[in-house]
Nucleic acid binder design. Structure first.
Lengths: 342, 342
DNA sequence: CTGTTAGCGCATTCAT
DNA sequence: ATGAATGCGCTAACAG
């Protein structure tokens, strides 16, 4: 398969040593040419680079990382199809690629045990740092992470909980409180709340608490709590319309904890011929691309997930560069995007 | 007076050597306990495992991989927010985690140069195999991959092009041909085609060719080709409705090369008060979650992207296990899902 | 600016 | 069943 050029008959594996031999320098000079070119004379550098190019040599990062700096960022995230997570991962990869790090990805719907296992696996690769999106539930894992040398950024709820190390995120309490208050200010009185299962998900829990608090702050009390949990799919949103409207005939708006649900809810209203927002209003969370294009356009809460991903990596890098005063918790802003649906 | 105490502060780094010291065995025994427990006596194994647990030791995979098998699967994919890619990556991570591999992710909208750079970066980590979704354009990169020791699976178009090594995917020509023929069979006569820019994207190109061929096969010829390119967003789908309906007043259906576009197109129809499919029908590609929940439900072409991701990893593993007759090209099926929109 | 020495943490190989 | 020696490919630290 490989084409052989008589001039580069490899003696042994194609390593830094072989390149050195061909260029007539010491291995160390090749190493320096790669990692600190300024310390090599221009002529030598050119000669070495030429040989590298010609041979198609690629440095073994495994070996390199063992002796010098770590160049892997490990990350654990919930399922990517969840709205927002993909954008966040995109922010992370972009930031990593820009600074020469590689992203090692673990992803899934983890039980506490699986989560612990996943973190263990990541740590084995000696990451320069970790970015964790799923709430780390296992105390053992939290302890291990805190004790380890790798900085950790949790992309998560920034309220109340003590981060393992650093955190980037929004106050989900605040965002949900703001949206609920906004809906109340617009005159809605019976506000339903639908989320995917909050169990083990701090962010969702905080959103629900924010919703409840806003109702209380405004002096509202519902005889039956208008809160339900559904699967994280558009069908879940449709289900929410069915169940919540059955729970309270006076229901006038549903606050969905994600745009995915909101979009599904909107479709169900169309199906029933319910005008939005007149018969039932819908509010989302996340501001995905589709929100602005939906019919009717979706009132939602915008959180910049891409920026979250980027910031998480940047925070990690600042810590790795040894910068002083890297804030432990970075709170990002949010914005209520008022459109037609509520 | 050093009494044996496993809770000892580590002397030196916490490595296999330190574990060995605490357990009173040789480092090699610890290594074996981890990678080939059967070769260690039950008592010794238990003792070593206890120390490992107790100390929270995690093997250095970097060092391990240098000496023995590679445990990284590298992957390069287009932006995750593209419909389908996220599911595919999910399939890959699930399959990797199940077999003890880790996924190193590179992601983005690559120019040929950036693509070459990204592949280079992946190869540096000595991956056991590579899964590439973006079409590898650079001949240099293709040559390098072909020459390297790592098996490569391209998730891509399976028609016409010679894979670097192996391929998993569908015939985009066939899928698009089938959908177009289906629309013709249903009586539509003026079929518009919208895709995101095909430049450098073999899959999209094949879809367009399939569309054209189906029209030709049915004896259709449009004075002005009803083909346009738009950005890969719901707004792009809306744009398609505007532009295509302006190009041909008799347009009766739009075949969108992705569900994202189709969903945007449907919203634009609602905005115009155009009944779907009576005034204008819409067909998509991909069958995302929302397709079945949309109002009206979306006629689309289902391709199991999650399975594609899984299969890609499985094919890699089979090759790595040295199985004979691993097929070079694995063609997955597809299905036209007829719903209300067309 | 360049080379030499030593060793990162583990597993292969060969001993016992 | 266990251990000792050796080296994977690279680079920090220290010459020259």
């Amino acid at each position: 398969m490989s084409t052989f050029d008589p001039t580069d008959r490899p003696r042994g594996r194609l390593g830094i040593k072989e390149i050195a031999r061909r260029a007539g320098v010491a291995p160390m000079t090749v190493s320096r040419t790669l990692s600190d070119p300024a310390k090599v004379s221009p002529e030598t550098r050119a000669r070495v680079m030429a040989v590298i190019e010609q041979a198609g040599f690629i440095r073994n990062e495994l070996a390199s990382s063992m002796r010098s700096g770590r160049r892997i960022v490990g990350t654990m995230v919930p399922p990517l199809i969840n709205s927002g997570i993909a954008e966040q991962v995109q922010g992370m990869t972009d930031a990593c690629q820009a600074s020469g790090y590689q992203l090692l990805l673990v992803q899934g719907d983890f039980t506490p045990e699986a989560e612990e296992e996943a973190i263990r696996a990541l740590l084995g690769w000696q990451p320069a740092g970790l970015i964790l999106q799923a709430f780390v539930q296992s105390p053992a894992a939290r302890r291990r992470l805190a004790a380890g040398p790798a900085p950790v950024v949790e992309i998560s709820e920034v309220r109340g909980r003590e981060p393992i190390d650093m955190a980037v995120g929004v106050s989900n309490f605040e965002t949900a409180h703001a949206m609920t208050s906004h809906l109340l200010a617009k005159g809605y009185r019976r506000i339903g709340f639908v989320s995917t299962p909050v169990h083990g998900n701090d962010r969702l829990r905080q959103r629900r608490i924010g919703y409840r608090q806003a109702l209380r702050d405004a002096g509202h009390h519902y005889p039956v709590p208008l809160e339900i949990e559904v699967p994280i799919t558009p069908a879940g949103g449709a289900e929410a319309v069915r169940r919540l409207s059955a729970m309270d005939a006076a229901l006038d708006v549903i606050f969905c904890s994600s745009d995915t649900l909101a979009i599904g809810a909107v479709q169900e209203c169309h199906r029933r011929g319910w005008p939005i927002p007149e018969r039932l209003a819908i509010a989302g969370y996340g501001d995905v691309d589709l929100a602005a294009q939906l019919f009717p356009t979706l009132t939602t809460l915008r959180v910049d997930r891409y920026a979250m991903g980027r910031r998480a990596v940047e925070q990690l890098l600042r810590r790795l560069r040894g910068e002083a005063d890297v804030p432990a918790v970075e709170t990002l802003g949010f914005e209520i995007v008022e459109r037609q649906s509520a």
